[in-house]
Design a protein around this nucleic acid. Structure first.
Length: 229
DNA sequence: GACCAGGCACATC
DNA sequence: GATGTGCATGGT
């Protein structure tokens, strides 16, 4: 199958999905055991490599803080010590606590109760919390609550701007509109699509080569594209 | 030793 | 509204 500039955006997005899925198969994200761990990971991975987040989550687990009530009771300094490896540890400790404070003050500490609200209300609620921006909110809604919000991250912007499908300067909502305007609001589809973008980018987009030979999206780089870098 | 990694809030203009 | 800056560790 080929993609050209004359293709409709929906055809392009479908083709890209198929190519990445053929290369990597179903991802079944998020890489976490519980919904709370998804939320913690979403905050800790802000501007941070996932390997550093994994070490921090391991520390939190060892300290028994990977449960909402335990983290809610814990001191900021204790949390910060545990998440040191994830960087920005003072900022992120505050952000984690902001979330659990809200969860206990408004929902009795119950994620079930928090996630019972509809997607749009949940999103504006999360965005109102200090430390939760668009990407973190959408990650929580999609991967912890299981509701269809498409997640836009640095990988998504990088791949799709390199391929000429969005402007390099496009903002979060603009990029998100490309996906939500073309794809049905299906949480399972959004889950797989974003996960496939991340694994593809991690595998190939860090290469210091103009074109990554084995990249599943290599064939779809436009003729005017400068290459993967 | 520089550069980068699945952001976000806040100050300033 | 757009732009700049602080936050910080660990891998390449």
């Amino acid at each position: 199958m080929s993609v050209s500039n004359r293709d409709t955006p929906i055809n392009v997005l479908t083709t890209y999905y198929d190519a990445m899925f053929a290369a990597f198969g179903p991802q079944g994200w998020w890489p976490a055991r519980t919904r709370f761990e998804v939320i913690v990971g979403a905050i800790l991975t802000q501007n941070t490599a996932w390997t550093n987040v994994e070490a921090a989550i391991k520390e939190l687990k060892a300290a028994g803080l990977l449960r909402p009530e335990a983290m809610h009771r814990a001191g900021l300094a204790h949390i910060a010590r545990c998440i040191r490896s994830a960087g920005y540890f003072n900022v992120k400790a505050r952000r984690l606590k902001n979330f659990t404070d809200y969860l206990f003050e408004r929902h009795g500490g119950s994620l079930d109760r928090l996630f019972k609200t509809d997607g749009a209300t949940l999103r504006s609620t999360l965005l109102g919390l200090n430390g939760i921006g668009p990407e973190t909110a959408d990650s929580i809604i999609l991967y912890a609550a299981g509701k269809p919000e498409f997640v836009i991250d640095a990988y998504t912007k990088r791949i799709f701007s390199r391929h000429g499908l969005i402007s390099e300067a496009a903002g979060y909502d603009e990029v998100k509109a490309l996906f939500t305007g073309c794809l049905p609001p299906d949480a399972a589809l959004f889950n797989e699509y974003h996960a496939l973008i991340v694994v593809t980018a991690k595998e190939f987009c860090k290469s210091r080569k103009p074109v990554c030979e084995a990249c599943p999206l290599k064939a779809y780089l436009g003729k005017g594209a400068k290459g993967c870098l």
